Amino acid sequence: IRLYEREDYRGQMIEFTEDCSCLQDRFRFNEIHSLNVLEGSWVLYELSNYRGRQYLLMPGDYRRYQDWGATNARVGSLRRV
């Protein structure tokens, strides 16, 4: 999964292949505005340590956080399923 700091895949990008319990420890931002799921399925959590609202993401492109059903861009952790 590739996470981007801004909409439309702009700004700083980070790629994950494994679970991350605290996004801010690995990426200086806690807001993700766009992403690409390259393979497999992922769950994004609004808070760190896999807490808060959850969003199940299938392979595909998500140009804005609204595309995955979120009401804001906050992402605290993520897990591959």
Rank of each mutant, 00 (worst) to 15 (best):
L3C: 10
L3R: 00
L3S: 14
Y4D: 13
E5L: 14
E5F: 10
R6F: 02
R6M: 07
E7M: 08
D8W: 04
D8F: 13
D8T: 09
Y9R: 15
Y9A: 11
R10L: 06
R10E: 12
G11I: 00
G11L: 02
G11V: 00
G11N: 05
Q12C: 02
M13V: 11
I14A: 01
I14T: 08
E15M: 09
E15A: 06
F16Q: 11
F16C: 08
T17G: 10
T17K: 06
C20Y: 15
C20P: 01
S21D: 12
S21C: 07
S21T: 07
C22Q: 08
C22R: 07
C22L: 07
L23E: 02
Q24E: 11
Q24H: 13
D25M: 04
R26W: 12
F27S: 10
F27G: 05
F27Y: 07
R28E: 03
F29V: 06
F29G: 09
F29P: 13
F29N: 06
N30E: 14
N30C: 03
E31N: 10
E31L: 12
E31S: 04
I32L: 14
I32P: 09
I32D: 02
I32Y: 15
H33L: 08
S34M: 01
L35W: 01
N36R: 10
N36H: 06
N36W: 13
V37R: 00
V37C: 04
V37M: 02
V37W: 00
L38T: 07
L38K: 04
E39H: 15
E39W: 03
E39P: 00
E39C: 03
G40C: 07
G40T: 07
S41Y: 06
W42R: 00
W42N: 01
W42V: 14
V43S: 08
V43F: 04
V43L: 05
L44G: 08
L44M: 09
Y45M: 01
E46L: 01
L47I: 03
N49I: 01
N49H: 15
N49Y: 08
Y50P: 00
Y50S: 01
Y50T: 00
Y50V: 00
Y50N: 10
R51K: 07
G52C: 01
G52M: 01
R53Q: 13
R53K: 11
Q54A: 04
Y55V: 13
Y55R: 10
Y55G: 10
Y55F: 07
Y55Q: 09
L56E: 08
L56W: 10
L57Q: 03
L57A: 06
M58Q: 13
M58W: 04
G60V: 11
G60C: 09
D61G: 10
Y62R: 15
R63S: 07
R64L: 14
Y65K: 05
Y65R: 12
Y65L: 14
Q66S: 10
Q66Y: 02
Q66P: 09
T71E: 02
T71G: 09
T71Q: 04
N72I: 15
A73H: 15
A73P: 03
A73K: 15
A73S: 08
R74C: 10
R74W: 08
R74D: 10
V75C: 06
S77F: 00
S77W: 00
S77L: 00
L78Q: 00
R79W: 02
V81D: 06
